[in-house]
Design a protein around this nucleic acid. Structure first.
Lengths: 202, 202, 202, 202
DNA sequence: GATGAATGAGTTTTCATTCAT
DNA sequence: TATGAATGAAAACTCATTCAT
């Protein structure tokens, strides 16, 4: 079982590098972040980094995967705590708006970078699609359950509503980083939640 | 008087260059488009292009401004044809979903590029914010009128709803280009419109 | 006809770069010569060199082509001055041995580099083969004429003899650069010429 | 006594490493073969290889020495079976042409690599010269014996003829790998042997 | 003004070699 | 003695920008 130790170690080292990269990518963007920057900030040598990731692109790709996995885990565990569909959705909205406000720009910019990369790099695109699908499915299932349970209108298409929700969340997140709009996110959240609630509940 | 003629001429020349750039930027992205690409496609010389724009960044910036102005004009004239607030909003939704489906990827990718650029370049950000504000204000006014006219619920915050709408539209557009999801945009539009309608109408 | 001026100028510039590269490649070898070396020695900038040759490999390839063309021209004009087949062959031997002795190492090393490159790079190989074929054909024709004219034995296969001659010359040239053997090239030439003469004349 | 065992062991280990390197160098060339390649193919660790050879260059150098020694042994034992000088030479020609045709490219490319290295690295050059000298001496002695025995013309210079023979063989071998010429090596061998025979026999 | 050749700092990536374990 | 992760100098190549003509 020696590979386990080795793999764990590798994971840890990769995480250290990714951690440094995360800050840089979100601050300066993918193109503007050079491997030299990552070398400087991470404290690893050029060769070491290339030992752990075979290219800048792969490093970026891996970062996206791990970020997404973490976010998804957080979302899932939060949702699991609630019983009703509407409560689950509200909890999800809470989390997302909280991350927009608190973790704020860094994470949101990173997301934008990933979206852009996804629109150009086939591998990234495939992965990103998969991730979005998972989230949409997650919400879609909640909505479908809500319909079944009589919480929501019966004529809703769960998938489409879920897609719209994901789109809205992403769009609002982007709005935050692309403008400096000092928005009152609490009120926007309330407006969002109540609009959706009125729109889908019966 | 001569400056006027000269300015008009300058504008025309700039438009020719921007037109070539638009295609390139949306197809390949900002970073992957080189000035040499623009030289080749536009037919202008290096020196000429630098005569009309003082840097690649400025060229990109200018392109965004003109694109936004055109889109806004289209939106405004379309909206002006309708009387009721809800009809205006639906017309706006039509336009946006049409551009997502028809003009499709190219335009949406361009938007992503702009959003990303906005999140890094202060000038761009300022401009982008201004543009978003204008659209939000446009929608907000419609909503406010709708409230006043008794079309919509009275407890709505027009600005927040407008922000959400703009976010949703942007998010769905990004979803299109970052994933290959073969979504049924017509149904999504319907779901979007009816959710919103139920959410805001009384 | 403006391209003519431009093309001539381009050729001249390329020649200047190639000239500097020739020295470097023959002194240090292909792999050991960096583009920075060429920049330093040629006085051109990085960008300028890449403007004239799209890669180090292409530069090397072009150098080989021009070298070969020059050598071939020299050989042809020398041979044209003689009447009999044996005299032509001897003249060719003179030229080759002279270049081995006088121009000496630099040219011969360059040849070795080209041979090695030919054995690995498909494009180079094709070009090298073509060049060798031309020389073999040149000699083969002389020999065939010599056979017809009754100078040489009638049972000779002109192509094979020509191939052997080309091989021998190349091999001796390599022997010069790969060893420091202070050989008496005049005597070797005499031995070569007389062996061949006795071997093929009747 | 322990050094003897140790030395033998070292030799064996070195041979294993060299064996893996031989394949790599001949397939990909010296520069294109990395130490990592050798690690992968040989199964030895980086450190182990550097324990047995102090550099890539030395490894290459040692490989050349052992290759040459093996070839020479084969040649000597083959030649020893023949009585007359011409029979010995023909046997030598057989061996060489056989290796060109059968073992073919791989070995010949390796030779080219060595020749090139010889032309740049003083140590290599010295060794290569020594090896060539030995072969030339071997052939030269045969020729000298042939002259004495009345087989060959009396006015031949044995050393020069031997040099030419070695050059020719090397040149033809290079011709094989640097071009794809589908030559009829049997006929070339016949032409070679008969030309030489006619050129030197009385 | 217009041109496009020239610039050179900056980019990603490789790889022979070392050395702590 | 053996290992292989780490090193970092050096390589090929790009491209926004300038400026002599």
């Amino acid at each position: 079982m020696s590979p386990k130790v080795s793999d764990e170690h590798k994971m840890m080292m990769q995480d250290k590098i990714l951690s440094a990269s995360r800050t840089l990518f979100s601050k300066k963007g993918y193109h503007e972040t050079s491997m030299d920057d990552i070398v400087k900030v991470s404290g690893f040598s050029k060769g070491a980094i290339y030992g752990y990731f075979k290219s800048k692109e792969e490093l970026f790709f891996e970062l996206q995967k791990r970020n997404a996995a973490m976010s998804l885990d957080g979302l899932k565990s939060l949702i699991a705590q609630e019983k009703t569909a509407i409560a689950k959705l509200e909890k999800a909205a809470d989390l997302v708006f909280a991350s927009i406000c608190e973790v704020s720009e860094e994470v949101c910019r990173m997301d934008l970078e990933f979206q852009l990369a996804s629109s150009r790099m086939p591998n990234m695109r495939k992965e990103f699609k998969k991730q979005q699908m998972i989230i949409i499915k997650l919400l879609s299932d909640i909505i479908a359950n809500g319909i079944e349970a009589g919480e929501f209108k019966t004529d809703l298409d769960a998938d489409n509503i879920a897609t719209i929700l994901v789109g809205t969340i992403g769009g609002l997140s982007n709005l935050l980083v692309t403008t400096d709009m000092k928005l009152d996110w609490d009120k926007i959240k309330d407006a969002f939640v109540s609009t959706i609630r009125d729109g889908i509940m019966r």
